[in-house]
Computed example of a mutant assay.
Amino acid sequence: MSWFEESIMARKGVAKGQTLEKRTITEAEQGSYPYIYTAGIEPVLTVDPGTVVSAETHDAFEGAIKSETDKPTEILNFPFLNPQNGPIYVNGAEKGDTIAVYIESIVPRGPQPRGTTVIMPEFGGLVPTFETALLTAPLPEVVRKLDITVEEGTKWNDKISLPYEPFIGTIGTAPIAEAISSLVPDYYGGNMDLPDV
């Protein structure tokens, strides 16, 4: 028996872990991507429990960084980062319910180089900011564009490639009376960067 068959989702969930329907959200169907979690946004898709949803997503910068010569501090508009798919309304879900979501796969799409990683002054967990004073000076602004494939992984250069191990950056449920930035993690989920998912 697999871990999934033994999971609470499969044993006690409304759909009992079964796939009952398949739906998609393309970029065209999504339209604009919200940057907040709130009940005040109309759902893009309404599904029944047990529905498998395939969604075309954007990167955390919504594709704004095109090349390694771009300057994120000049291009990006904080706090409008981490665009979210949805909202997706689940029929029958009520306040206080737990929504169990199984991430089946994450597959890169779009032209190469697909991946973007940046270092920005005063942004990130390992850099000095106005809230986390460190004895080091701010790191220089750097952009790396990377070729990413499922088969060959993340190619940093001709000598270094890392295995393809994608993960969910942000996922969550909408608070009823709040509008919370998709940059923030909390009781509703949000920006959790879950390497185990």
Rank of each mutant, 00 (worst) to 15 (best):
P72S: 03
I36H: 13
T132G: 06
D59E: 08
P111N: 12
L76G: 06
G189A: 05
S105E: 12
T26C: 04
E29N: 03
T98Q: 10
V53R: 01
K95W: 09
G124M: 08
W156Q: 00
R144S: 05
S7F: 07
D97F: 11
D147S: 11
A137R: 15
V101W: 09
T132D: 09
E74T: 01
T129M: 09
G124H: 11
I36A: 07
A179T: 13
E104Q: 12
Y164P: 01
I180C: 10
T73S: 09
L139F: 14
G125V: 04
M9A: 11
P108A: 00
G63S: 06
V44W: 00
I106G: 01
F80G: 00
A100Q: 13
L162K: 09
P113M: 06
T117D: 12
A28H: 05
P138F: 05
I180V: 14
A15E: 06
G153I: 02
Y89P: 04
P175C: 04
E151I: 01
R144W: 09
T129W: 10
I106D: 01
S2V: 06
T38H: 08
V142W: 05
I119M: 14
G13E: 07
G13N: 05
A177T: 13
D193K: 13
G189C: 09
T154Y: 12
V52W: 09
I41K: 15
W3I: 00
A93W: 02
I41N: 13
L126R: 15
K145N: 03
A174G: 03
G110W: 10
Q30G: 02
